[in-house]
Design a protein around this nucleic acid. Structure first.
Lengths: 211, 211
DNA sequence: GTCTATAGTTCGATAGAC
DNA sequence: GTCTATCGAACTATAGAC
């Protein structure tokens, strides 16, 4: 079925174009063409390119961040908060969205990976605004499950954790290329279990260095 | 002392502008202004924006990659190749360059982090051309020092390793912000030892899952 | 809401003087 | 080798018909 014109069609198109070309590398014409609407319609609904980008990111980030916060609270309430559970709570929302073609969110993971690695003012602004609050929550939780870890190691460990998750989220095809096809970037559980194993061991090792 | 006009002044300016704004977000005018030369002079020396970018990257990547290859060969020749030595051989060239203000290479690390996380055709092309050969070398070396690791885990482990190193290389100020100033992104050895500890434990854990 | 047409700006690249 | 000046294309955004 053909999609009807409207805001969501434009948001989907913009998400894809921004993810594949970055903010500066994307033009309103490319997005209009992808969405099969007139360029002026995008300005009617979203005003400027800047505000369009903000709405693209806001649509997904709020659900991811609230899922991450709720999972953490739930685990704590149930007394089941350990390191592996913490990592699963963090990774799963992003990976699920990044691999879920139904929701049309398969490009958001790439968009976030690109944005959070960029150094321009807009990208840094978005990263801090959207992800620093969640970061502080998870750094605090790392202290709970690894009581021996130092403040510095908890922060560096969290940043390493994010670096690993961005790698596994991006679906650039590099894993398949370097493994001659053995690694399957579409196998969600395969990636998730490896990521958790790797990061959990890394964080425990950081805790050990402070004993 | 003021720098004299010429190719190296333009390359330094381009490296900085590209690192801070990305390829698409950088204009020849911005670079000309940063270098304090006429825009036409950049075209005289480098022809197109594309070729300028290629020369900016080539200037640093060749020395980094040959350092990585030579360190690996030397360790093997000396019979001192273990996991920690392998990781140090990989991380040090990039970290040293990223923190060395004398050489003027302090922006290259950010440029590479941005480029290797981007999904546009040019960035993917550069990442594969410049870094896939070194990647295959180090994946092979991972198999040597961790004989029990599976092919898939070695590739995923290598990609996680790269993800962690990009995080610690970038100097975005996020570590300082999240730790209320406790983490010092300028302390090279502090970052390097943490990175090695974290990644070594992660890779050993991946090896263990296959026993 | 959605379109066509276009104004006004900025871009990469080139011509030509020195 | 370095400059000023400018061309033609692409860009964001807007005006106005429907």
């Amino acid at each position: 079925m053909a999609k009807e014109p409207g805001k969501s069609v434009i948001l989907d198109a913009a998400e894809k174009v921004f993810a594949l070309n970055g903010y500066a590398g994307s033009s309103m014409r490319m997005i209009a063409n992808e969405a099969q609407v007139a360029q002026a319609l995008i300005h009617y609904h979203f005003d400027t390119k800047d505000k369009l980008f903000e709405e693209v990111v806001a649509r997904r980030s709020s659900s991811i961040n609230s899922a991450r916060k709720q999972s953490l609270d739930q685990l704590r309430a149930d007394g089941r908060l350990d390191l592996e559970a913490l990592l699963l709570a963090f990774f799963r929302p992003n990976l699920v969205l990044g691999h879920d073609t139904e929701k049309g969110g398969q490009f958001y993971a790439r968009l976030i990976a690109t944005t959070s690695s960029a150094n321009d003012e807009r990208s840094v602004y978005f990263t801090r605004k959207l992800y620093d609050p969640i970061a502080r929550l998870y750094i605090e939780a790392i202290h709970e499950v690894l009581p021996g870890i130092s403040d510095k190691d908890a922060v560096w460990g969290y940043l390493f954790l994010v670096g690993v998750s961005l790698t596994s989220m991006s679906k650039t095809g590099r894993a398949a290329g370097l493994s001659d096809g053995k690694c399957n970037e579409d196998d969600l559980e395969e990636i998730l279990s490896r990521t958790v194993t790797f990061v959990a061991a890394g964080l425990r090792a950081l805790e050990q260095t402070n004993v």
